[in-house]
Nucleic acid binder design. Structure first.
Lengths: 225, 225
DNA sequence: TCAAAAGTGTTAGATTTACACCCATGA
DNA sequence: TCATGGGTGTAAATCTAACACTTTTGA
């Protein structure tokens, strides 16, 4: 309980972003190549340093904005990573965050500019430092979050088919779901609204498009998948 | 992805410990009074700064050891807290950890030395800075952990009665449990071993003492409470 | 003898899982 | 006409929750 600020050592604090997307029925994350030595060229999460004039959450938002140009993205903290040797270039404590975005909202242009790619989460290359561990932990947290809160929709377009939604849940949890049981559960959630629109892209017959109604969810909150 | 170490700002990093204990059928945490201004005298978690020559986990272990004299305590990270105004004296990013100890292992002597007390978690006083929020989050994490892993035993003596164990789960989850259903579930877990010893302190009739068998758990891991 | 905590099974209800066929359409 | 994905209901099995009385013994 004895703390005297002056005499203590300051440390570089960074944030690293695990950006989840969903495409081709696979859960993916956005990674690139490290720009600086040591470890230059190695696969790496996108990150940045925390400034003295911003909170750590603001630093995470800013970093994500730098990379994607997006504001108001769903982000949650994964935790702090602070092993001594985690960054061979300097003592850096890093705070990992995960974000959920719709891959369609991220332009190919920005991907190229920043040299990042969507990589299937089950086929990750070896990565810089402790980034693998950050990703593992982020995925676990996201998995448990998506079971009790309707955050999965953030990975989908506003309008989606039930098959898309099912494939998303299958990709996140890594196991198949019975179609009829899945749809039964969806029907019980009134805030997953059927529209009159039909998607004709993925099947000849066409499938009804659904949307997530946030206001209806706020009233009901009967979510369980 | 552009990081150049030199030009970035360093920040004070601290750890704060939420130390859980169980006594008198209540879940408690160990808190004291802040030793320095600003906020001197306010109720506060026990914490310390992270040094440049130790990982954040080591800093947490060291801090807990300073307070309790205990090594090899079960600790888990709660997360990083980094609002700009969270510590009015300086910019400090704090990483919270929770620990589970058996209150009987912590001497009244050390409690006095450090000026800390066990306080019922449902009757906490107002606390310094964001410590309330740290505690709330720690409790949530601990609650979900204790449902799927046998960590509750760390809050109890090596030998305990089933009623003690039940009261512990009731205190952690904040709701009563049916005695027969609880015991039924315990019986299914072979790693919660009945001994031939009888506790005569809490009842005239006496109750069998049980122990957690870690080795048996490693083989079975069939845990759900 | 009685108060206080220990100990013990059964049943109804709710939830979860498994499972197979018809439909609509574009190629 | 056929291959492809869309859409639908029921029954068995499992899990969960509710519930009350007898035992032991120290005071």
């Amino acid at each position: 309980m004895t703390k005297y600020y002056i005499e203590h050592q300051k440390i570089l604090v960074s944030v690293d972003c695990i950006i989840f997307g969903f495409d081709q029925n696979k859960l993916k994350i956005l990674i690139g190549h490290r720009a600086m030595d040591p470890g230059k060229g190695e696969w790496s999460l996108y990150g940045g340093f925390v400034r003295n004039d911003e909170s750590i959450n603001e630093a995470a938002d800013r970093t994500l904005f730098e990379l994607t140009g997006m504001h108001d993205v769903y982000m949650r903290q994964v935790g702090a990573f602070g092993n001594l040797d985690r960054d061979p270039g300097a003592r850096v404590v890093s705070i990992a965050y995960y974000a959920l975005i719709n891959v369609k909202d991220y332009s190919a242009k920005m991907m190229k500019e920043h040299g990042v790619e969507w990589v299937n989460i089950d086929e990750l290359p070896p990565m810089f430092s402790d980034h693998q561990e950050m990703i593992r932990k982020a995925r676990k947290l996201m998995q448990s979050k998506i079971k009790t809160e309707p955050v999965g929709f953030k990975l989908l377009p506003k309008l989606f088919t039930l098959t898309q939604l099912q494939r998303l849940y299958e990709a996140v949890n890594g196991e198949e779901i019975d179609k009829r049981n899945f749809r039964k559960r969806i029907k019980e959630m009134e805030f997953i609204e059927k529209t009159e629109l039909i998607d004709k892209l993925t099947s000849k017959r066409g499938a009804f498009l659904y949307r997530f109604n946030k206001k209806a969810y706020e009233e009901d909150k009967n979510f369980k998948l």
